[in-house]
Amino acid sequence: MAFFTDPSRRGGRLRSLVALPAVVLLGTAALSACSDPGASASSASGDTSTTAARNGVVYNTSPDQQRVRAEKDTALAAKVPELIGKDGKLTVATTAGSIPLSFHATDDKTAIGSELDIAQLVADKLGLELDIQVTSWENWPLKTQSGDFEAVFSNVGVNKDRVKLFDFATYRAAFMGFEAKKSATYDIKGADDISGLRISVGSGTNQEKILLAWNTELEGKGKAPAVLQYYSSDADTILALSSGRTDLNIAPYPSTVYRENTRDDLKIVGKVNAGWPSETLVAATTLKGNGLAPVLTEALNSAIKDGSYAEVLERWGLSEEALPESKTVNEANFGAAK
C-alpha cells in the first residue's frame, strides 16, 4: 500500500489503506520479527490524536504525522541497485504491531511509528518514494525472499538464523521489557525469576526464544517452567495482563516504556537484551546478497550525521536506544559487526 511523499522536509503523510487483520498465533514462525502483532492507538491508548506521557513525550497517534524528513543524497541515490530503484520506490514491509515502533493510528488503518519514520528518512536520502506494505509476522520472510518487499522496518533483531537468508543495516538497540501490574513485586533478571509464572509472548519472536531457553534452564534445575500464553493482538495481550489472566508480558522495551508512561496500571519489572545470551541490534532487513543493505547503512549514517535520526528517536521517546553508527551485518561478519 503506497503513499505519496511531500517534497518538503516536513509534512509527508502516510496514507495506508488496508488494516492488518488479527491473526491468532498458535505456532512458531522461526524467522519472524521481534515484536507483538496487532497494536493500534485507538485500542491501546484511547481514541485520541495525542497522548502526553509522564516521560515528557507527546505521542502523536493520528494519521497525520508531519514526519521528520531528509534531503536526497545524490551520491547515495546512485548506489541503489538498479533492480530495486528502477520503479522509483523503496518497498518497505512493516507489521504495525507494537506502539510506538510500528502500529495503526487512531483511524485503525494508517501505519505509523518510529520504524516508519526511520524508513522515511532512508527513502528520502535515496531519492525514493516510500511504499509501505503492512504484513503479518509469518509473511515478511517469504515475501522478502520472493522480492515483494525490498526492506523490512519492523523491529527485526539480527540473529544467527536470519543472517543465513538476509542482510541487515542496524539502526537501534534491541531490548525486551517485562511488564506487570503496578502492584506486582517481580524483579526479572533471569530464568529463576519467571518460574511458574504465566507470561504472554509473541509467537516466533526473539522474546519467545529467550523464554523457551529459560524454561529449559528451569527444567534442568527441577523447577517449574513459566507458562507461555499467546494472544491474537497487542490489545488482547494487555487486557489479559491488566485483568490478571497473565502475570507478565514480554515485549519490545520501547513498547513497555510507552505503556508505563501512558497508563496508570502497568510498570516495567525487568529488561533483557533481545539477543540473549549475547547481544543484538534492530536492523533494516533485506534479501541476502542483493546489494541493498550497504546502501541503507550509508543512508542511515547520513541521517545520523545530519541529526534527523536523533530527531525521530526523540519524537517517539527512544533516544536511549540510539546508535552512534549504522553497520551492515551479514552472514560473513555476524558477531564481529555487532
Rank of each mutant, 00 (worst) to 15 (best):
T135I: 08
G177N: 10
P63S: 06
V152K: 01
S136D: 06
Y230K: 15
N55E: 08
S154P: 03
N273R: 03
E311V: 03
H104R: 06
L76P: 05
A33I: 04
I112D: 04
D247F: 07
D108W: 00
D306G: 01
L266R: 05
T28R: 10
L126S: 05
T61C: 11
N60T: 00
L26M: 13
F149V: 07
S146M: 03
S154A: 15
V68Q: 13
A299G: 00
E331H: 12
E138I: 06
T94Q: 03
G196H: 12
G270W: 08
G244Y: 10
S62E: 09
G27W: 11
A105N: 02
I112T: 04
S102F: 08
S302N: 10
K223F: 13
E208Q: 15
A251F: 01
T5E: 13
A119P: 05
D264Q: 05
P81V: 08
K221F: 14
I238K: 12
G177W: 04
L287C: 04
S8Q: 13
V282D: 04
L130G: 10
V18K: 13
S233W: 04
Y258D: 06
A303H: 03
P294Q: 07
Q133A: 01
A173D: 14
R245H: 02
E325T: 12
N159C: 03
V163E: 07
E279S: 10
T135M: 01
E71M: 09
G127A: 00
S195N: 11
M1A: 06
P7W: 12
G147D: 07
A111V: 06
A96N: 08
N290R: 09
A191Y: 03
G46Q: 12
L292W: 05
Y231I: 07
P294D: 05
F168V: 07
N55G: 00
G157W: 01
F178I: 05
G202W: 10
K182S: 14
L83Q: 15
T205W: 15
S136A: 04
Q120K: 15
P294R: 03
N215E: 05
P225L: 10
